[in-house]
Simulated assay, not measured.
Amino acid sequence: MNESALSGLYDFERRFDDRRAQEWMQANWTKSFVFCGVYATFVFVGQHLMRSRPKLNLRRPLALWSLSLAVFSVIGAFRTGAYMFHILTSSGFKESVCDNNFYNSPLTKFWAFAFTLSKAPELGDTVFIVLRKQRLIFLHWYHHITVLLYTWYTYKDQVAGGGWFMCMNYSVHALMYSYYTARAAGLWVPRPLAMVVTTCQILQMLIGLLIQGLVYHWIHEVHCPSQVENIMWGFLLYLSYLVLFALFFYDSYLRGGKRAKTE
């Protein structure tokens, strides 16, 4: 990146050891299955145990939890967004898709690794749903499990398309967790905002499918490194998310179904 972009770097971003982070992920990415196993056990056992117990009032902890994830996502969206904007304006759309320097650029290397790790603590969203005895839909826990597995699996290989995926997810989560924070804090939030959040999630899935298709189309080019296996899993996951989020939107806002937390 140019000097003007790098001049805005924070010291912790500049000093972050991305090589060591990648080595750690290559050696430990399979631990994501352990996290998901414990998480899935909690989902089913936790709901069973809470059936005969009163729901817990965790409004304040939930507000603080959502606020911390909102702040993290907002900062991550700004930092990764600055990088993606630079690539788009200086090198074009194709380079933004095929670029894999996102994982080791001074501006984004910390945020790429932080994003990847964050998918483990984000499982904590479900703890609040279970302990507060709210409706836990399939989309919620399926999405959490598969995103964690795919994100850790992808980071270890640092394939093309990652910049788009992370930047989009940071941005959507910035809006989503801000919305959850306001709700948990007891603030009045207009219903159309919930529709906006879900619409942004659906849009993210559509763009994700497009990016996966373009990476597959350009995979044999020198500067578009990826693997067919990774693209296949990514495409199937994005397609499943698109279907599930679209059904959620229809049930929640068009058919008059109950509102539910999706992520």
Score class of each variant (00 low, 15 high):
F72T: 02
S73F: 03
S73D: 09
I75F: 06
I75P: 01
G76N: 11
F78P: 02
T80H: 09
A82G: 12
H86W: 10
T89Q: 14
S91W: 08
G92S: 10
K94P: 10
K94T: 12
K94F: 07
E95Y: 08
S96Y: 02
S96Q: 12
V97I: 15
C98N: 14
N100R: 14
N100T: 04
N100W: 07
N101K: 07
N101W: 07
F102D: 04
F102K: 08
F102S: 02
N104F: 07
N104K: 13
N104Y: 05
L107Y: 05
L107N: 10
T108W: 03
T108A: 00
K109Q: 11
F110V: 14
A114K: 05
A114E: 07
A114T: 15
F115I: 13
F115Q: 09
L117R: 06
S118L: 07
S118K: 15
A120C: 05
A120M: 11
E122D: 13
E122R: 14
L123P: 04
L123E: 06
I129E: 08
V130K: 01
K133Y: 13
Q134I: 00
I137D: 11
I137S: 07
F138M: 03
L139Y: 13
L139S: 09
W141R: 10
W141Q: 06
Y142I: 06
H144Y: 00
H144M: 02
T146E: 06
T146W: 10
T146A: 01
T146K: 07
V147F: 00
L149F: 06
T151L: 01
Y155F: 15
Y155K: 08
Y155A: 04
D157E: 15
Q158M: 14
Q158L: 11
V159K: 10
A160K: 11
G162W: 07
G163C: 01
G163W: 06
W164C: 00
M166T: 09
C167A: 11
C167I: 00
N169W: 00
N169K: 04
S171N: 04
V172Q: 08
V172K: 04
H173P: 14
A174I: 11
A174Y: 14
L175F: 03
Y179A: 02
Y180D: 14
T181F: 02
R183S: 09
A184D: 04
G186W: 08
L187G: 00
W188M: 08
V189F: 07
P192L: 09
P192C: 13
P192K: 15
L193K: 11
L193D: 05
L193H: 05
L193V: 15
M195Q: 12
